[in-house]
Write a protein that binds this DNA or RNA. Structure first.
Length: 639
RNA sequence: GCCUCCAUAGCUCAGUGGCAGAGCACCUCACUUGUAAUGAGGCGACGUGGGUUCAAUUCCCACUAGAGGCUCCA
């Protein structure tokens, strides 16, 4: 019996039940660095017999599948080490993740200090050249084998068909595989963190101890990884925010950032951008209360679903009367809509609302500017007829593209469909989801579908942008566009149609920049604090060399300020070296040096953030070039 | 909310069951300097509340805040 094997554009015939290792030999493929085979698109152990005609690929660590298998095997390796050191621990699951792997354990108490011990044990075990042996078993055999572990039993109970275990030395684990041929391929090992995680992601179930790690085929790869991690730390917006004196957090109000003077400038520039864009795209701004009677949220349905996360307040004099700080703006736009009788001729009506929102987020979820309890969105609600919805959402994305292009943000989209808990009719959900699909297709966006992830009142498109590493798995959530059939109905919002009858409009929710604070955080992380000129709190710092030229430096500052530049003067008698260093660390885009030479020639010397110096620059010309860059909201600084 | 870790000066970090250490920042003085740190001096701190102890910043407990995960995210 022979089996036909396709490999790239070749086809060979091999003895039936050959393994990928044997096939590679036939093909003359070098197996150095190869971790796993892909047979008809499915990952397969290198030592598993192949019984059918197939196409084959050989994957090393540089492939997605190779990494996945390598890390999955590493999680087994870790489990072996931990079981040796802590025999009482029960295994949960141990998958590969985007970057590394984890394994969950029950009945295991570990701290960060324990990780090096486990790491070292892993290294010792790996050196032993342990094989990962695949074995097919029956459910009954599995039950015998795993009877002492309730978690594995639970998994086993839900399994149908082929059940496999992997044997590595004395260690046996219920596992679908595949695995790398030997643990000795795992060279660079780093356990990164210990965390608690709920069994099967259910907060009502047991808390497991989750140990995260990452491994590489060489220690050099590991060093490389550690270097990148350190680099990532430099992009942390909380750190940058502190260094650049942009915002503070305070235990006085956890989750509510305090914007310092410099941070307020950046924040307001972003708001200004938001307002300009909304005006340009036909939105009318409204200003609505920061709180309202709780009845409002009962009507909208939020009270029922999110009551625990709302700040409820009452006046001291009347504790009966319950108000709540608004957690979202939606209901208020209906008041504006209903301020007069609306005709279909007025639609679509687009109301922008920038009020402060308060949500009591769980303390463990707060994160700098990314997850806060107080935030402000460039929110808007569009009231439209059924026929207008599609084009209106297209328009939202046009606005988005214009804003995002300023930051070279590349949006990634997901379509979130009806959740289990929802309001509205199935027909409406069908229509909403189909409109969103159509929009995504018309715009030519690539997207993935997240089943059941929609808001309780309507389907939505979630928009993400990449972080500075450009890896999709670490993208930031920025905003959602949602179609809502219910808001208008619940608040009794109607317009008069061309048929002279009352109709209920459809509402579109959108907040193109999401939370302004979070948007700023994303910009900070992406730029590592090197803000574009138009966003920089200080755009140019004027430095004196000695105090002979203080008067001249003041004049320069006045010239630049008059042209609208945010200029600051440092005429202290510190050395120029010192001042340059200080301003560079503050990431100020331009330094204008006003010394003896400059005063004589009536010029300035300009040093940019990258350290390039240009002498003999005319101050007025410099200012007008800067003004151009600012009004264009240019990303790069190239004056 | 759950798990692990952490909390020393404005910042970054040492350290100890027995008087609290540094660098930077800040203030003062000297220096008058040409593109990433001039020198000297000074000011300034053990998150909060309990407990153990002759003695606690140090050990224990609780709380608060922070970091990373989990869950959640209208």
């Amino acid at each position: 019996m022979r089996t036909k094997i396709h490999f790239k554009d070749r086809e060979i015939s091999v003895r039936a039940r050959s393994t990928p290792v044997e096939i590679a030999k036939e093909l003359g493929v070098d197996l150095k660095g190869i971790l796993v085979a892909k047979v008809n698109g499915v990952l397969v152990d290198l030592y598993r017999e192949i019984n059918e005609d197939c196409s084959i690929e050989f994957l090393d660590f540089n492939s997605k599948g190779g990494k996945q298998v390598f890390w999955h095997s590493s999680s087994h390796l870790m489990a072996i080490a931990i079981k040796e050191l802590h025999p009482e621990a029960l295994l949960g699951i141990g998958p590969a993740i985007d970057e590394g792997f984890y394994y969950d354990f029950y009945n295991l108490k570990l701290g960060d200090n324990d990780l090096p011990t486990i790491e070292n044990r892993m290294k010792e075990i790996a050196a032993k050249d342990l094989r990962f042996l695949r074995k097919q078993i029956t459910k009954e055999e599995g039950k015998k084998l795993l009877s002492t572990n309730k978690f594995k039993m639970e998994l086993l109970d839900q399994m149908n068909g082929e059940i496999t275990v992997y044997e590595t030395g004395d260690f046996i684990d219920l596992c679908r595989g595949p695995h790398i041929p030997s643990a000795k391929l795992i060279k660079g090992i780093k356990l990164t963190k210990v965390a608690g995680a709920y069994w099967r992601g259910d907060s009502k179930r047991e808390v497991m101890t989750r140990v995260y790690g990452v491994t590489f085929p060489s220690t050099r790869d590991l060093d490389e990884y550690l270097k990148t991690e350190a680099e990532r730390g430099k992009h942390d917006h909380k750190k940058i925010g502190k260094e650049l004196e942009l915002f503070e957090t305070s235990s006085l109000s956890p989750g509510s950032p305090f914007f310092l003077p410099k941070g307020a400038i950046v924040y307001n520039e972003l708001l200004k951008l938001a307002r300009e864009m909304d005006a340009k795209y036909g939105y009318q701004e409204i200003i609505t209360p920061i709180m309202a009677k709780s009845d409002v949220w009962k009507t909208s349905g939020h009270y029922e679903k999110y009551r625990e996360n709302m700040y409820r307040v009452s006046p001291f004099s009347n504790e009966e009367e319950e108000y709540a700080l608004k957690p979202m703006n939606c209901p208020f736009s209906t008041v504006v809509f209903k301020s007069k009788t609306r005709s279909y001729r007025e639609l679509p009506l687009r109301f922008a609302d920038y009020g402060f929102l308060h949500r009591y987020e769980l303390e463990g979820t707060l994160d700098g500017l990314f997850r806060t309890r107080l935030f402000e969105q460039n929110d808007a609600h569009i009231f439209a007829t059924k026929d207008q919805v599609e084009d209106e959402i297209i328009r939202v994305f046009e606005l988005m593209e214009e804003v995002y292009s300023l930051f070279k943000f590349v949006p990634i989209m997901t379509l979130a469909t009806r959740p289990k808990e929802r309001i509205g009719t199935e027909e409406e959900w069908d229509l909403g989801e189909s409109i969103l699909k159509k929009v995504l297709e018309r715009k030519g966006y690539k997207y993935t579908i997240k089943e059941g992830d929609g808001a309780f009142y309507g389907p939505k498109i979630d928009v993400y942008v990449l972080d500075f590493t450009g890896r999709p798995e670490s993208a930031y959530t920025v905003f959602t566009v949602q179609i809502d059939f219910n808001l208008a109905r619940r608040f009794d919002v109607k317009y008069i149609g061309s048929d002279n009858k009352e109709h209920v409009p459809i509402v579109i929710h959108r907040a193109v920049m999401g939370s302004i604070g979070r948007f700023l955080g994303i910009i900070l992380e992406n730029t590592a604090g090197d803000l574009p000129l138009w966003l920089s709190p200080t755009q140019v710092a004027i430095l004196t060399v000695t105090d002979k030229n203080v008067e001249y430096a003041r004049k320069i500052k006045e010239i630049l300020s008059k042209c609208g530049l945010r200029a600051e003067l440092d005429d202290s008698n510190a050395t120029l070296d010192y001042k340059v260093r200080e301003k560079q660390l503050k990431k100020i885009p331009y330094l204008a040096i006003a010394g003896e030479k400059e005063e004589k020639a009536k010029t300035i010397a300009i040093r940019d953030r990258k350290g390039k110096v240009k002498y003999g620059v005319n101050p007025e010309e410099f200012a007008s070039k800067c003004a151009d860059s600012i009004s264009a909201r240019a990303l790069d600084i190239t004056v």
